[in-house]
Amino acid sequence: MTHAHDDSVQYRIVTEVRELGEVVELQKMVWGPDPVSSMQHMRAAILHGGAVIGAFCKEALVGFCYGFIGYDGKNPYVGSHMMAIHPAYRDRGIGMRLKLEQRLWAMHAGLSKIVWTFDPFESRNAYLNICKLGGTVSTYIPDFYGSDPAGYPTDRFLVEWMLSSDRVVRAINRQHQLNGDSTDYPQLLEFEYTDGKVTGLVDMAAKSKIGNSHGLRLPVPQAASKLRQTQPDLYKVWQRQFRELSTSAFAHGYQVVSCHQSKPEVQDYVLEMKV
């Protein structure tokens, strides 16, 4: 499975101890020393049906994604656990291409679904997962990894990527814009602005809108890490309200189907009732 996105980057399965060691080093560069999947862990997962896919530039590892086989009591699927890109190689489409390579690998193995988690406040990840890849979200997991070093909860969205669905095929072939107009849908959070910056959240009795509209909009900050540093109190309130509203919406049968930037500094998730 060796393809080239451009002449400089090649994609292939990684199995050797030495190259898996490079994967561990890239994890440490991106996330620091602690949250790593060890070489031994990945070797064991590969032995039992998992895969590490590497992106290489002139034989140097510049990105990877790692997934293993999951089982929900009915069907096997791929649990995609990690993806990282070397900071010098971001914004070159490598993340998208790694997911497409993972999709081909999974389909070749006879699997129809890949599932992974991400921080819903990471708006760029959201755009990739929902709009460019065609994933959907209907599960919110509070505090998935416990509190982070700064004491914030590690809440996560669970993405489901149905590999052969019309939605996914249209998204990856860019035949269908999944970030279409949804301005008619009610906004579940409104903001106070000062000098063009979000300075507070307005209580809009949002929960009363859930279940009374086919679609909803639920905003996150466009630059969450910056907001967390400069306005930690606002960040905490926003995260808490987002958790409550997401959980309620999913319980009422909504799923995330799109996201787009609606206002400065804000990106909306678009939720629609499942058909």
Results as ranks from 00 to 15, higher is better:
residue 10 Q to M: 13
residue 232 P to T: 06
residue 230 T to A: 15
residue 133 L to P: 00
residue 219 P to N: 01
residue 269 Y to E: 03
residue 145 Y to I: 13
residue 124 R to S: 13
residue 138 S to H: 11
residue 146 G to A: 12
residue 182 S to E: 05
residue 11 Y to K: 01
residue 110 G to F: 09
residue 107 M to F: 11
residue 107 M to W: 07
residue 29 M to D: 15
residue 267 Q to A: 07
residue 35 P to G: 15
residue 175 Q to T: 07
residue 266 V to S: 00
residue 244 E to D: 12
residue 212 N to V: 10
residue 159 V to H: 01
residue 113 K to T: 11
residue 195 D to M: 06
residue 140 Y to M: 11
residue 23 V to F: 08
residue 244 E to H: 12
residue 274 K to P: 05
residue 110 G to D: 11
residue 257 V to R: 04
residue 44 A to W: 07
residue 255 Q to E: 15
residue 227 L to S: 00
residue 15 T to P: 01
residue 76 P to R: 14
residue 78 V to I: 12
residue 56 F to E: 12
residue 11 Y to C: 05
residue 79 G to D: 08
residue 228 R to K: 11
residue 2 T to L: 13
residue 53 I to Y: 03
residue 189 L to E: 03
residue 109 A to M: 15
residue 158 L to N: 05
residue 116 W to G: 04
residue 39 M to V: 11
residue 221 P to I: 02
residue 144 F to S: 08
residue 97 R to A: 05
residue 87 P to R: 15
residue 94 I to H: 00
residue 45 A to R: 03
residue 60 A to L: 13
residue 226 K to L: 07
residue 90 R to C: 15
residue 17 V to T: 12
residue 260 H to F: 13
residue 65 C to Y: 00
residue 64 F to I: 08
residue 6 D to H: 14
residue 168 V to N: 05
residue 3 H to M: 12
residue 188 L to N: 00
residue 105 W to T: 02
residue 193 Y to N: 02
residue 178 L to W: 00
residue 214 H to A: 08
residue 1 M to I: 14
residue 173 N to Y: 11
residue 6 D to N: 11
residue 22 E to L: 09
residue 227 L to P: 01
residue 175 Q to A: 07
residue 213 S to G: 03
residue 104 L to V: 12
residue 107 M to P: 00
residue 158 L to C: 07
residue 153 P to E: 07
residue 131 C to A: 10
residue 71 Y to L: 09
residue 115 V to W: 03
